[in-house]
Amino acid sequence: MSEATPVNLPDHARDTTGTAVNKAAHDRRSFLKWVWGGLKTALAALLGVPALIYLADVGRRQRPLRGFRRVARLSDILQHGKTSATTGKRIYEVVVRETRRDAWMIHPNQVLGRVWLVHDPNQKIEPNDPQSALVAFSAVCPHLGCSVRYDAMDDRFSCPCHAGVFDLSGQVLEGPPPRPMDRLQVRLVPDKSSSTNPPDYFVEVDYQEFVPDIPQAIPRS
């Protein structure tokens, strides 16, 4: 890239005759060169920076919002839930549905996740704090995300993929899962329209997903 190579010389540094140019012309040319370079850089930045931001497209779309969603009535669990042979608890699977947003598309009423509800009919219902009487587990296996199912024969939860086994309180009995089943927040809301005694409740679950295959239950961001 030596100055002597004529091909490498910029257009303006050359004269048709090939003789040296005077100083004034040189100054003018270097000024124009500077303006030209500046313009090119400005234009490149003007287009390049937005282009990069456009391509990066970060943090705009989110997972469905958190919040309590109505999934069942307490009477459903009592009527349709399976009864644990050893503890008398009722085990019932519910589906959490939500409108999903896929870029510009919207899919109403999609399955957000499945939840296992474990209800102990012998415990007294405290609507504000039902933790002792009603527990909600995410059906997503904490190992690698398969669907955990209830095994009525052995009265325990099991994951079909890698043979993880949990008891009714979600603790790991066998297999690779690094932590117990993920508990979800649950609450009971009195059903004002019900005429039964004791009154019926709506079960509401705050569904969320957790990072798989680590010992702690950390919500996915």
């Binding site: 937005p50 282009a51 931001i53 456009y54 705009r60 870029a103 510009w104």
Partner: peptide, 29 residues
């Protein structure tokens, strides 16, 4: 750049252009 978002299809084209224009940063530009 537009090809990174555009989706040719009678049910998806308008939506993707809408998305570029109004939802992607500097998509309008």
């Amino acid at each position: 750049l537009l090809m990174f978002a555009y989706s040719p299809g009678s049910a998806s084209a308008w939506g993707s252009v809408y998305f570029v224009q109004y939802e992607l940063p500097f998509g309008w530009l």
